[in-house]
Design a protein around this nucleic acid. Structure first.
Lengths: 243, 243
DNA sequence: CGGCGACGCTGATCTGCCTCAGTTCATTGT
DNA sequence: ACAATGAACTGAGGCAGATCAGCGTCGCCG
């Protein structure tokens, strides 16, 4: 899997070794391309007529709001991730989706997807694998918020993000570009923005990781992995499981 | 859907109106029945050769342990719920599963399941709906732990459990039998057992709900729903969506 | 140019929940 | 009959992280 291909194909390639034919079938899947600008919700709770998308560029977050105005971000989608694949099939959306940056996304027709699956069945497996990974990420997030301290929690989040970005060619073991504000981090990690700020400073002073000016720089990967008890197998299984 | 049928059929009946033929196809799905006793893990992290089950009686929990010994319970399975349907298809288990009580479960062969789907396709939709509901529950759990206070969080949990039990005929709006200890509640809600104890007392003193001697009694449903901001639509959609 | 909003950052204070260290009660085993 | 165990329960003290209030910097716009 090299840089010629879309992030979506790169990501699936981490689960299932894809042939040239399968990769180009995936690339053909990308339909009409749409652009969304930062901050304006793409989907609201209760909305029913939504489409499914594959993110081509930009970042997006899914969240829920409570009546007191606080919100909880459930997860982020980065290039190569799909949006609403599940809810377009089964229910009205139960959460909001907001672009964090300007976003380009290709609309995916369910009919096209099903057709692709019947022609190249291994792709169905790959997509289901990806969906299962998304679920594992939410579970890991739950564990973080429930049982990890702010510092470990933040470290875990930054590592997971890095691993995901590396998978689609947008980062390396040493760092990545990250458009998230400290407020977004706070809403993700169940902390206050003030505390996130202090935690980031501590991680910096410990020589573990620096997150400044939209860029995450990992200084001590082992130390960070150790602190966060980060186990990346749920993200890429250390290479394709299906050859 | 009446009391003659299995909890599994009752639950799916809440999503898709099932014919007699479909219900009996579901009931035939239950294969070899196994019994597990409380406290002994059924599945460990990393285990690969697991089967899928449908719970006939008893309660089960899925959890993860951290290195400091604390654990986070991700969710409970009650009669009618399936266990490991997803992970049997796609990966080694990334969490542990422990029976809370003695448990009876029917093994489900993937081949039988797929065969049933092709004969009665609406059942496939129903099962996918159920899987999607499970995901929504984990998300709601995440929101609870991230942004709700101990009292609201506990109230929300007790309400969700009640709604789920009612769906399979094991509870009513006024209460249900609940075999969970305060330690299990604590590990679920990201709190300490000590604090759970105080929260339960407060809820009792507020006249909202009593949880004592293995029984949850709801005194003021509206007050509780209000406190927890509980929205049950993600559990049963107020009746079958597909007629 | 000055004003304004976003965002990062910081000190001081407050509080929700944890930890520790028990007691009581019911159940089980010997 | 008496330990042993486990669960519910309680008080005291401590701490992680929230809240409040404020400052500095930057980019944008009229």
């Amino acid at each position: 899997m090299d840089a010629r291909h879309s992030p979506f194909a790169r990501k699936l390639g981490a689960f299932v070794a894809l042939s040239e034919k399968e990769v180009s079938a995936l690339d053909r899947l990308h339909g009409r391309r749409k652009v969304f600008s930062a901050g304006k919700d793409m989907v609201h709770q209760g909305q029913t007529d939504q489409a499914a998308y594959i993110l081509a560029s930009g970042w997006v977050c899914s969240y829920k709001i409570l009546s007191d105005g606080t919100r909880q971000i459930v997860d982020f989608q980065i290039p190569g991730d799909s949006l609403g694949l599940r809810s377009v099939l089964f229910r009205t959306s139960d959460h909001n989706i907001e672009p964090v940056t300007q976003v380009e996304a290709s609309e995916v027709l369910v009919s096209d997807l099903l057709e692709t699956f019947s022609e190249t069945p291994r792709l169905a497996t790959a997509v289901l694998w990806a969906a299962s990974r998304d679920e594992a990420m939410v579970v890991e997030h739950l564990v973080s918020i429930g049982r990890r301290h702010a510092k470990e929690r933040t470290a875990h989040f930054l590592l997971e993000l890095g691993a995901r970005l590396k998978l689609v060619g947008l980062g390396s073991t040493s760092g990545y570009a990250c458009p998230l504000s400290q407020y977004l981090l706070a809403d993700t990690l169940g902390l206050s923005a003030v505390h996130i700020n202090r935690v980031l400073r501590e991680l910096r002073e410990d020589g573990l990781v620096t997150f400044q000016h939209g860029h995450v720089e990992i200084h001590d990967l082992d130390g960070l992995v150790d602190l966060a008890e980060f186990d990346k197998t749920y993200l890429d299984h250390d290479g394709p499981l299906l050859k």
